[in-house]
């Protein structure tokens, strides 16, 4: 486990946070049903995402003994209505959490792809937040819009699919999914979760302009001042600040 704060750790090698005070794991951007949606567009991906998401969640729960899961948006993939594949995988996943792990406490923050939540919130019995949710000291929001709440010591978002591109000494580019951690202009802390989706490569925040994607980085925080924790196989390492990683990439 890699500590980010006294209360928050990265479950090693996984795109998952463990928050002690909440006894919860947190993740984002699962994009369930991705393969079905892609198949509809002519790319026939093997069904892998749900399986991997389940494996990851199982590992994280076993390691942390958390009693709660917080999904920080985009549990499914399509912008528009619910695709049949998404529907099936979504229920499959819900069953998995409840039956296989006996999780009672499932929290869902609505993402920009999750327009179905309002309709299903009754039958799902998930704890759902359609804008943002204050859980203990933490303000969870998806990240496609600005957070409204003024409370919360730390803000936690997803949406950006952050990754870091590194050119090694011999000039070859590699990309790693990464957590971002830093301070916002108003003094609160901000954590950005990497995408849980198996097929999401991530956006290289040290090469590209993420302000376009996430308004937080336009007005409330400077992505360059965030610290990146890259996820490798089995461990996560602190790679330092984004602005320096940017300089290195452009050397």
């Amino acid at each position: 486990m890699t500590m980010i704060t006294r209360d928050i750790e990265i479950v090693d090698g996984l795109p998952v946070l463990y928050i002690k005070s909440l006894s919860a794991i947190a993740c984002s951007d699962l994009h369930l049903g991705y393969e079905g949606v892609m198949a509809d567009r002519g790319t026939f991906l093997p069904k892998m995402n749900l399986k991997k998401v389940k494996e990851t969640v199982s590992k994280a729960l076993e390691e942390t003994h958390a009693e709660r899961i917080i999904i920080d948006g985009d549990i499914k993939n399509e912008f528009s209505d619910v695709h049949v594949e998404e529907f099936n995988e979504f229920y499959d996943f819900a069953n998995f959490l409840r039956k296989e792990h006996g999780l009672r406490h499932i929290t869902l923050i609505k993402g920009n792809h999750d327009n179905f939540i309002e309709r299903l919130r009754e039958s799902l019995k998930f704890e759902t937040y359609t804008e943002e949710g204050l859980l203990g000291d933490y303000l969870f929001f998806h990240g496609d819009a600005l957070p409204q709440g003024k409370s919360g010591k730390t803000l936690i978002m997803g949406h950006v699919h952050p990754a870091i591109a590194i050119y090694n000494k011999l000039g070859v580019k590699e990309k790693f999914k990464a957590f971002l951690y830093g301070k916002m202009a108003d003094g609160r802390e901000l954590i950005v979760l990497p995408a849980m989706n198996y097929f999401a490569e991530g956006v290289s925040v040290n090469l590209e302009d993420v302000g376009v994607m996430a308004p937080v980085f336009d007005t409330m925080a400077d992505v360059d001042m965030m610290t990146a924790y890259c996820i490798g196989e089995g461990e996560s390492l602190n790679f330092g600040r984004v602005d320096r990683l940017r300089k290195i990439a452009f050397q």
Binding site: N168, G171, F176, G232, E235, L237, F239, G240, R244, I248
Partner: peptide
């Protein structure tokens, strides 16, 4: 082209070392 280390875990550490060095 580049022939990369087999051990991915070591590989991330190696990159980490290089990055810190450059920083």
């Amino acid at each position: 082209d580049i022939v990369m280390m087999k051990d991915r875990r070591k590989h991330l550490r190696e990159l980490h070392r290089q990055v810190l060095q450059q920083m």
